Simulated assay, not measured.
Amino acid sequence: MAHVVLFHSILGLRPVEGEIAAVFEADGHTVMLPDLFDGQSADNYDAAFALRKEVGTDAIMERARAAVEAAPPEAVLSGVSFGASLIGEFWADRPQMAGALLFAGITDWMDPPTPGLPVSVHIARPDPFDDEDYFADWVAQKGEADLQMHRYDGAGHYFLDPSRDDYNEAAAKLCLDRSREFLKGL
């Protein structure tokens, strides 16, 4: 079974991350949910970006780094949107990691991407925060990483979160089913 470090979205650690973790834990995986905003969360993206600024990059990265260091070397790094972007800070230093699981966002590739590293990505199409060229360029830079790029047509950015207007039940179910299969295959 996999050990997963799941970083929350820019909105903070909210019930949806616990729900995602519960799905994976029901399959026997261990999931860590670091609280990068120290108990604070936001209801909308404007407030979330202000909260991120208030908490500060140094504190966020210190908490993220502590979570990664507490995880086994083979742990799967995972994140939602902003949380997905944080993975780029760590995966080059984790040659034994079993894989990466990114929801609603991507991150900078390590240079070069680890050959054969399983990476599963789940992104709405279109995504309101990034254009299609951005994602196409990212896929083109994957090198020899084992990338599974899943797109969800007509779903909102954070389509996994039932509390958000951009929630899409069918896309969320398909995404979690694909993610469960990905973790099972590691």
Rank of each mutant, 00 (worst) to 15 (best):
V139A: 15
G12N: 06
E19G: 11
G39R: 00
V16M: 09
A66W: 02
D146P: 02
G83V: 06
K184S: 14
V16Y: 11
A22Q: 13
S85G: 15
W138F: 12
W138K: 07
A70E: 13
G83R: 06
G88I: 09
F159H: 08
G99T: 04
A47M: 11
V68Q: 02
L77I: 03
Y134Q: 14
A140L: 00
L160A: 03
A21N: 09
A98G: 15
F82S: 10
I106N: 05
D153V: 04
D133E: 08
A98F: 04
H29P: 05
L102C: 07
A71C: 12
D46F: 10
S81C: 12
E17Q: 15
L117K: 10
R164K: 10
A47P: 02
T30W: 06
G185M: 09
Q148M: 11
W91E: 12
F135G: 08
A22W: 04
P118K: 05
F135S: 05
S41P: 01
D27F: 01
F24I: 07
E17V: 09
I123F: 12
P118I: 08
N44W: 09
F159A: 09
F37P: 00
R151T: 15
V76T: 13
S179W: 04
A50C: 01
A84T: 05
S41G: 01
R164A: 15
H122Q: 12
L183G: 03
W91G: 00
L117C: 07
V76D: 11
Y152E: 07
M32N: 01
H122G: 07
G83C: 08
G56E: 03
F135M: 04
Q141C: 08
P112D: 10
W138C: 05
M110P: 09
G28P: 06
A67L: 06
M110C: 09
F182I: 14
A66L: 08
P112E: 09
V55Q: 06
K184L: 13
L77N: 00
S9R: 04
A84H: 07
K173Q: 12
D93F: 00
S9D: 14
K142H: 15
P112W: 10
R94L: 10
L51M: 15
A59F: 00
A124K: 01
E74P: 10
Y45M: 15
W109K: 09
H3M: 00
A59L: 13
Y158H: 12
V139Y: 12
P162S: 04
M97C: 10
A26H: 00
F103I: 02
G185A: 15
D153A: 13
E69V: 06
R94F: 00
M32Q: 14
V119F: 12
A75P: 02
A140H: 01
E25F: 03
A70V: 02
G28A: 12
S163H: 10
Y158E: 06
N44R: 13
Q148V: 11
P95R: 01
D27T: 05
I20W: 02
V16W: 05
Y167E: 05
D130H: 13
V23D: 11
S120L: 07
A145D: 10
D137L: 08
W91R: 08
C175L: 03
A26T: 04
L6S: 12
G99P: 07
H122N: 10
E144Q: 13
M32L: 13
